[in-house]
């Protein structure tokens, strides 16, 4: 029963996406930068190192608690650059608009984009606009691409995790995915769940100032913390052990996930980073992170191990162990 058409789960950010990217795109475009499979590529230009990245945004609904598709499109690309230790500088923006989209919505989205760019210290220096007939796109899609400069002496990449490293996160998991889902499905909980969408470059800059030896930074977007950690484990050929009791999960997100049968480990984040850092610098780094507005709830959630390379494990609250696999299938459609 061979598959002949593109399936939705190939865009979920989980295993099916991974296999499509590896099997088709990386194969067809084959080069050393792409093979690294990092959030952005590092290229040499005039003796300096430039980080480059691109991302498309198709979130439904386009406006959600805590942001909209415009601010998300800036934060997403800024974060992809920051995850290589780069200082983001310039972005481009491409718009695909559906005939009939309300101009008020478009204005709201574009203004949020401008504001997000100012807040992130980047300039949107080029753009493109296309309009397609009604029904050929869903309201609006945005693509952003960005470049940034990587300071000398910084070597952050998915393949650099070392056994013994501590795994850190800068706050609660699953907020973005649940905010979007609840908005889309009209689910209301005691408090409104807000997306964590935010630019992480400044937090990263401060982290690298105290610890230039940070090995890995990744933002756990689609596929969630579980999928991103699996990618790191595979890229670095190490195991990763998580502690269930250490995972920071907001009360409302935990409740909504419980109700809907979702696992927060697989729910998307847009303002979170995972860091693998030398264990002896973890405490100092956590203190710096907690002083930053985007890191108040930073936690050490696990460690990198020699055992079981390529896999992620969880020590459960009651003391048992289990495997944590990549996202399979589609947990939530179109969240970014």
């Amino acid at each position: 029963m061979k598959q002949r058409t593109v399936q939705l789960d190939q865009g979920s950010g989980g295993r099916a996406t991974h296999e499509l990217v590896k099997g088709l795109f990386v194969e067809a475009f084959r080069n050393e930068f792409l093979l690294e499979m990092n959030d952005s590529a590092l290229v040499q230009l005039n003796g300096g190192r430039i980080a480059m990245s691109t991302d498309s945004y198709v979130v439904d609904p386009v406006i959600f608690p805590g942001g909209n598709i415009g601010s998300l499109a800036v934060h997403g690309t800024v974060n992809d650059l920051a995850m290589r230790g780069a200082r983001p500088l310039y972005l481009t923006a491409g718009f695909i608009l559906e005939e009939g989209l309300s101009l008020e919505t478009l204005e709201q989205v574009v203004r949020a984009m401008g504001e997000a760019a100012r807040e992130s210290g980047v300039l949107i220096v080029a753009g493109d606009t296309k309009v397609v007939p009604r029904g050929k796109a869903d309201k609006l899609f945005i693509n952003t691409a960005g470049v940034g400069v990587v300071p000398p002496g910084i070597h952050v990449a998915g393949q650099n995790a070392r056994p013994g490293d501590a795994v850190l996160i800068n706050g609660t998991i699953g907020d973005h995915g649940m905010a979007v889902l609840c908005k889309r499905e009209g689910l209301a909980f005691e408090n409104e769940i807000r997306s964590d969408s935010a630019p992480l470059h400044d937090l990263v800059r401060q982290m690298l100032e105290v610890c230039p030896r940070i090995h890995v930074l990744r933002d756990p977007t689609r596929g969630g913390v579980a999928t991103t950690l699996n990618e790191i484990a595979q890229q670095s050929s190490v195991g990763i052990r998580l502690l269930e009791e250490a995972l920071p999960i907001g009360e409302d997100v935990a409740g909504a996930c419980e109700l809907l049968g979702l696992d927060p480990l697989y729910v998307a984040n847009e303002g979170k980073l995972l860091a693998c850092v030398p264990a002896d610098e973890a405490e100092e780094l956590l203190q710096v992170m907690r002083r930053h507005p985007l890191g108040a709830k930073s936690r050490r959630i696990g460690e990198v191990t020699v055992e079981e390379p390529g896999r992620v494990f969880l020590k459960t609250r009651i003391g048992g162990h289990r495997l944590v696999d990549m996202l399979r299938g589609e947990q939530l459609p179109r969240i970014c």
Binding site: L314, K315, T316, R317, I318, G319, G320, H321, R322
Partner: peptide
């Protein structure tokens, strides 16, 4: 049972 890792305990 699997999610809580109870078998091994």
């Amino acid at each position: 049972i699997f999610r809580s890792g109870l078998r091994h305990l």
